[in-house]
Design a protein around this nucleic acid. Structure first.
Length: 424
RNA sequence: AGAGAGAUGGCUGAGUGGUUGAAAGCGGCGGUCUUGAAAACCGUUGAUGCCUUUGGUAUCCGGGGGUUCGAAUCCCUCUCUCUCUGCCA
């Protein structure tokens, strides 16, 4: 969530930034009005409470002397009622503001390319090699079928469409990819975690997935738990409501989880095979760092994700999202897209976002900042998340790019010690 | 799932109605001593909001509600943790 103080003190700046995202900014005005009222109530209630505290103290002293304080107690009864009414109003205003604030996205960072749609995103890098095939290539569905390594039909029988079943060498390849990615990230300074994949509402709120995106989430009704759409959610919440030490930052985690997305509203789009699924596997990267370092940490994380594709020898590109295409919580975002030879298009395999303090404010994740005069200040950390990477679309690119003329698939060299076989 | 116990600051842990925002210890930070370090000693050390900001004030003792002039302390409720029993990978 945004800082109410920023809206209070610098509303024009906020509106200007939100306009870059093509956001409706009328809510900001509403928030300002309610906030003004709220501050008045806070003051009034504060004064009354100060009086109450003083008088209660006096009553205590009078009673200690065994004297009569009936008239004072009678007066304070009324004051207590007034305070109660004020605080009830205050609570209502607070809730009103929060309910508006929860739907306002993060402000785009500085120097983010302006744009209205994905067409305005900017290609930053293109790496790897394109391949030339002198035979007719098969798409990942066909390759999955003829090698009996991915079975979408039976997955659908078990759960519904979009729940893939990996079999035989397909399952081994998937597991190998995950292990390879984890090992690589661990060796580059990330702490591995295995997290819960069902999380409570508070965790979803801190990650800014709820209430705005509640419809996109699988939810376990009787317990009010959510199936995570990404490991970003549980990993961020490792430190919810905590104050970290400055010298333990940057704190970097990596973790593999299954991810679950209802993909409500996207039916009929990219429905083929792995292109859009309800359950997929992903190794996630999360960094907690100081505001001063979040920009350079974003670049580092991007490199960490790219490194995986370099090693796998996959052809990919990096694009920087324009202001209009930024995700709800992100101030800056890079997407990594892998090339699909069969679909003849780029597929998003990773997204590396700097969410600055947008999530840490909601989840109260802070650190003790050391100041020059030996004092300390508690400040919100910046949180970055990135996929490193999701396997489903990577699998599309990998199978297609490494296919042989007779429908087999060569295993990338770096994976062979994990798979134990060279070819599928 | 049943029975019981508990939740207090970075940590351990005192505190059962009125200078307790909270003893004590540990840890952290600063200093004295020392060639340096350790030890010892001294000092210091929570968060958040609001305001007329070298300060004042309010709120916060798991969450929410209640009783009271006044609640960490009493009552209700929820959540979580631990112990025992049951069940189970």
């Amino acid at each position: 969530m945004l800082d109410i103080k920023l809206i209070r003190e610098n509303p024009d700046f906020v509106v200007e930034k939100l306009k870059l995202r093509n956001e409706d900014t009328s809510e900001i005005l509403k928030i300002q009005e309610i906030d003004k009222k709220r501050l008045e109530y806070i003051k009034k209630s504060g004064y009354l409470k100060e009086y109450k505290n003083k008088m209660s103290d006096e009553i205590g002293k009078i009673k200690a002397k065994k004297e009569d304080a009936a008239d004072k107690i009678a007066e304070m009864k009324n004051v207590a009622d007034d305070i109660k009414l004020l605080d009830e109003e205050l609570k209502k205003l607070d809730l009103e503001i929060r309910n508006l604030l929860y739907y306002i996205p993060a402000l785009p960072g500085e120097n983010i390319p302006y744009g209205k749609s994905p067409e305005d995103n900017i290609e930053v890098r293109k790496l790897g090699e394109t391949k030339k095939f002198n035979y007719k290539i098969r798409d990942h569905l066909e390759l999955g079928k003829i090698n009996d390594i991915i079975d979408f039909e039976r997955g659908a029988k078990i759960s519904g469409s979009g729940f893939p079943l990996y079999k035989g060498k397909g399952a081994t390849l998937e597991r190998s990819l995950i292990n390879f990615m984890l090992d690589t990230h661990i060796s580059r300074g990330y702490i591995e975690v295995i997290t819960p994949v069902l999380v409570n509402r508070k965790s979803m709120e801190a990650a800014e997935k709820v209430p705005k995106f509640e419809e996109d989430m699988y939810r376990i009704e009787p317990d009010d738990l959510f199936a995570i759409p990404t490991a970003e959610v549980p990993i961020i919440n490792i430190h919810r409501n905590e104050i970290l030490k400055q010298d333990e930052l940057p704190l970097k985690y990596c973790g593999f989880t299954n991810c679950f997305r209802r993909e409500a509203g996207s039916y009929g789009k990219d429905t083929k095979g792995f292109l859009r699924v309800h359950q997929f596997n992903k190794v996630e990267l999360v960094t907690f760092c100081t505001p001063e370092t979040s920009c350079e940490e974003t670049e580092k994380m991007l490199n960490d994700a790219c490194y995986i594709l370099d090693e796998l020898k996959i052809y990919y590109r990096v694009i920087e999202l324009c202001t209009g295409d930024l995700g709800f919580s992100a101030s800056k975002c890079y997407d990594i897209e892998v090339w699909s030879y069969a679909e003849n298009k780029w597929l998003e395999a990773s997204s590396v976002s700097n969410c600055t303090d947008f999530q840490s404010r909601r989840g109260l994740i802070r650190y003790k900042k050391l100041l020059e005069n030996r004092k300390t200040k508690t400040e919100l950390v910046h949180i970055l998340n990135g996929s490193g990477l999701a396997t489903s679309r990577l699998m599309v690119a990998l199978l297609e790019a490494n296919q042989t003329g007779d429908g087999h698939v060569l295993v990338p060299k770096v994976l062979r010690k994990y798979t134990g076989f060279d070819i599928i």
